[in-house]
Nucleic acid binder design. Structure first.
Lengths: 343, 343
DNA sequence: ACTGTTTTCCAAAGCGCTTTGATAGCCGCA
DNA sequence: TGCGGCTATCAAAGCGCTTTGGAAAACAGT
């Protein structure tokens, strides 16, 4: 059933039917009602491509997710982020199209998405510390919101980010206040902006307290359970092992706990742990007293906010780009305790 | 830059330019070359909505992902599944649109996707044991492939599934052969078809060996780390605790290990564990000798295969629906061992 | 030179919608 | 009665592409 058929059936013109359905005022209420009823009866929904052609709007939004071919890893954060966005989109009538793109052909794919015109705007995931995509997109003139930031960008652009540096500064400070001096960091890949900032926060807290930064306690990599396990295992073999660690994701924290269990150590007593917690739905760390002490920032909410920002940009072009910086909550759980007395 | 402009620039008609770019034979090779060069020079890419309108094809595929509002959980399997599909789609020129839909308005959303015409086909995730969506979609006449199966469906439909029943039958049999008699099961929600079949496989293996099925050892729920933890903790408190458990996902298995560590027990010695392993990228269980003994079936490959099936259905309508049943590998890891001697 | 093929290109219709500009019909007011 | 100003509706153009049905040009065969 299409507009033409519906109009014929009603004995009206396409114009009137279209207007009735789209809420324009120049149609009598009785007529509008009649049209709406018929539309419902025949399950009429306007063809989205035709509508897009006519209006110049695609009514869909693209999420561009980088996939490193080498690691074949999709950051599990995306699933929750998208869940957050999705609800906002469907309320506003947008579709969500996902584009996994490999390291190499990033710019080509952006250009393509733009030229093909199948999205009205983009969400950019996983910005690197230095990320050419952003300048490129800005030149392309398509609205976009970055989840995270890139550090060295000349132009202004819209982003939503967590205050990674402060979160890790606070977490490290907490550990220091508990008496810890040997504090490890198991981070994401530090070419990624978020991981770099977390590292800075960690290093800054140590520096503020005059604690030297020991490279033997620094690890970075894809945030898998295995990374946490290996890093912790290696650190425990050191002559002077850490009494506390900071981890960049709950998945890493699970690996850390695993290594500690293997070594017969108890989390929160022998070694303290503070993790960042994206509040992923299947890795909830939300008991009355959570298992892990954590800096928590629900990524699902980031997704919803980013979606709202982007829709605003699309629907009111010409506004200056918005920036949202969210603070993480520091949640006390059972994985932290005072530093054990040496010996 | 659009077709018209490109054609004018080249001094050709739109027809010829269109044909040149789409590989039709009735255009001179020299002309084609000239057109292609110009297209590249101006970054011309045909507007996908206009193309869709003209051809009646959307060149995009929808993934419908059920979200239970109650649990607010997105199964992490989807991320990897989609990664597998995505590559196939982009090679074949399709876009991927994602539709998270809540329990209630399933059918409405399918109908909408169909009427709006923004997808050529659908992948249906998370089928329930009894799932009205499938009959509904079949009536709608839109090509679709189900990831998993529903049990009681009259009509024939395309699906790709793992042999859940056999996998869990084999896993349970392995444990029985190792001397275990008290074997727990921590499963997904058993209204879901895959979980129901796993339960059947487990129960069948016990029955084959004349071992009674103890309801105290049966758990089912959203497959989170917490489910594994709580279930195992509870089972360890039983008068006659299990010496082995089967889990439906590695995330559950992590929770089980956690509970065991808390109880001071060693995996593979005190209690054996076999998990199903979807081979998720950030929870790899792939050491030389894997941590967990597991039934492994890489969900990313399921995604790719499903995508290929669906594209075949779209491009050759009228063929009978394909079915793919994959066997899981049984991988021996360090989490299994002979049943401990009683006492 | 004349016809029949083949090659190469083109004009125009059509996909399903929105939107502009026009047209009736009706009201009130002089 | 006639005219301006509304209201409710419509016809038609246009969005950017594909594709049908020609037609001109080039070529081949007699």
């Amino acid at each position: 059933m299409n507009l033409k058929q519906l109009a014929e059936h009603l004995g009206l013109s396409q114009t009137t039917v279209s207007r009735a359905l789209n809420g324009y005022p120049e149609v009598r209420e009785a007529t509008r009602k009649r049209v709406q009823d018929a539309a419902r009866e025949f399950n009429y929904a306007p063809n989205v491509r035709a509508k897009g052609l006519a209006t110049g709007r695609a009514m869909s939004i693209g999420h561009v997710i980088p996939v490193s071919k080498k690691h074949e890893i999709v950051n599990p954060v995306f699933a929750d982020f998208i869940t957050g966005s999705s609800e906002v989109y469907s309320k506003a009538g947008y579709d969500l199209v996902i584009s996994l793109v490999e390291d190499g052909d990033q710019e080509q794919r952006y250009r393509e998405l733009h030229a093909k015109g199948n999205v009205d705007g983009l969400i950019v995931h996983g910005p690197m510390r230095v990320d050419s995509r952003i300048e490129f997109l800005a030149e392309l003139g398509m609205p976009f919101v970055v989840h995270g930031r890139a550090s060295d960008i000349g132009s202004d652009y819209a982003w939503i980010d967590m205050n990674n540096r402060r979160a890790f500064h606070r977490a490290a400070t907490l550990l220091i206040e508990l008496g810890h001096r040997r504090i490890g960091l198991i981070n994401g890949i530090e070419a990624m902006d978020f991981a770099y900032r977390r590292r800075q926060g960690y290093a800054g807290a140590l520096e503020d307290c005059g604690i030297p930064c020991d490279p033997d306690l620094l690890f970075a990599g894809e945030m898998t359970e295995n990374l946490g396990f290996c890093a912790m295992r290696d650190m425990l073999l050191l002559d002077d092992p850490p009494t506390a660690v900071l981890t960049s994701s709950i998945i890493i924290a699970l690996g850390v706990r695993h290594a500690m269990d293997d070594a017969g150590l108890v989390l929160g007593r022998d070694v303290s742990l503070v993790s960042h917690d994206d509040d992923l739905s299947y890795l909830r760390n939300r008991a009355d007293v959570p298992v892990f002490t954590a800096t928590r920032s629900p990524v699902r909410e980031h997704g919803a906010t980013a979606a709202e920002m982007l829709i605003r940009m699309i629907e009111n072009p010409g506004q200056p780009p918005e920036h949202v910086l969210l603070e993480a909550d520091l949640i006390l759980g059972r994985s932290t305790g005072p530093a054990p007395r040496p010996g």
